[in-house]
Design a protein around this nucleic acid. Structure first.
Lengths: 213, 213
DNA sequence: CCTAAAATACCCTGATCAGGTGATTGTTTT
DNA sequence: AAAACAATCACCTGATCAGGGTATTTTAGG
């Protein structure tokens, strides 16, 4: 008989906590090691019980689920963590992702998707509800919008790129095989167009506004 | 009788193209308006046929799927585009996302997930294969992983931050109410620790390695 | 209490950068 | 053909930065 998947649950709602436990127990493939209504002792619990998967509610009293993930990730990079949340809004999801969660499931999809989500994280995937995935996609598509037009010529863009990579005027001149004075002329034009008065401002603005890679 | 969902297919593999068409036709809910082996006339085709959903192979001869998405998004922001790909590696996926695709399906999951994925995009979600979702999550978690330790003191970090925002030494001195020479001393220490020899290199490195916001 | 680290400050010299002015050549646009 | 733009180069002046050394005060740890 193969070893069952060991699971730890953090969920403050008693009914949901018990439903989850029952749901997982019924399958026979999963063993719920324990379930807790809060994360007050999360580090010791995870260390001692050493689960394969953690189901973590985001909205917990005391230490919230996101803080808990940070704590866990501080000493355990491999346990698979699936966040359970009623929020499909912005910041919570991102914070949880940054913290190091592996999957995100809206509570309304739990009955449909939980078992599938657990399988996915164990296979190295990142399960998430469609609307959450949509948020992530949208956030990644934002950079496309950027890149204002300062009417820089190709040569000016090239020089701004080199400057932003840490090259001095002298190095740029050598790199492009042109005179130092020519580099300076281009730099002056760049300053005029970007409305800045020093290399620092130019580089800062160029990187901030994604004028360079 | 409700109107069927109208679909356009771009896929260079003949067998797969026909399988997709048959699979969708069998359900009775979808109507394949047309299917093409390349994107040479994609703009006119999308404009005239005006589909609800487009299935787009990434690896197409001539204009590839990612370029095609950019072209389509140029005039049609609402059509739902699902990318079909054999790649679960790096850049292709990101490029497609930046370009404005709505979902991403690895070809090996097509038979299992295609119908479900179409439903999801039509409901405003973003379907994607678990491994692709994983890539996205990982990319969002990088900022957490980053930030090497150069043993900068808090004051040095503060000054590096101000420098990277475009401030001159003079401005930093004024901002922090310390002497210009003190700023210079801190700067020297920062250069030593980062192994650089100019403000440009320092700022470039600081932003590159996410030492500053 | 004592020490190490951090933050503060000053001086000097040479290198680099900013701003202004002017000029030549070739290409593109009108 | 004329005008506008792009890329190239030069010179001059004053400002800012880099690198070296030295030194005092405050903070944090053992």
């Amino acid at each position: 008989m193969k070893k069952s998947i060991q699971i730890l649950i953090y969920e403050d709602n008693v009914l949901l906590r018990e439903s989850l436990t029952n749901l997982l127990a019924l399958t026979g493939e999963y063993e719920v090691l324990a379930s807790f209504p809060d994360c007050s002792d999360v580090m010791n619990q995870v260390r001692q019980l050493d689960p394969d998967v953690i189901l973590m509610d985001i909205d917990l009293p005391g230490i919230n689920g996101i803080e808990a993930v940070k704590l866990i990730r501080g000493f355990n990079p491999q346990v698979q963590i699936i966040m359970l949340t009623v929020f499909d809004d912005n910041s919570h999801v991102f914070d949880a992702m940054y913290a190091g969660a592996n999957g995100y499931l809206l509570k309304k999809y739990i009955s449909d998707k939980l078992l599938h989500a657990i399988q996915e994280v164990l296979q190295g995937g990142a399960p998430m509800s469609p609307s959450i995935a949509k948020m992530i996609i949208s956030s990644l598509q934002q950079p496309v919008v950027a890149a204002k037009d300062y009417s820089l010529t190709n040569r000016e863009k090239e020089i701004l790129q080199l400057l932003s990579s840490g090259n001095s005027f002298k190095m740029i001149a050598a790199e492009l095989s042109i005179s130092l004075d020519t580099v300076r002329t281009h730099i002056k034009h760049i300053y005029d167009k970007l409305h800045v008065r020093s290399q620092i401002e130019a580089v800062s603005k160029a990187i901030q506004e994604k004028l360079v890679k």
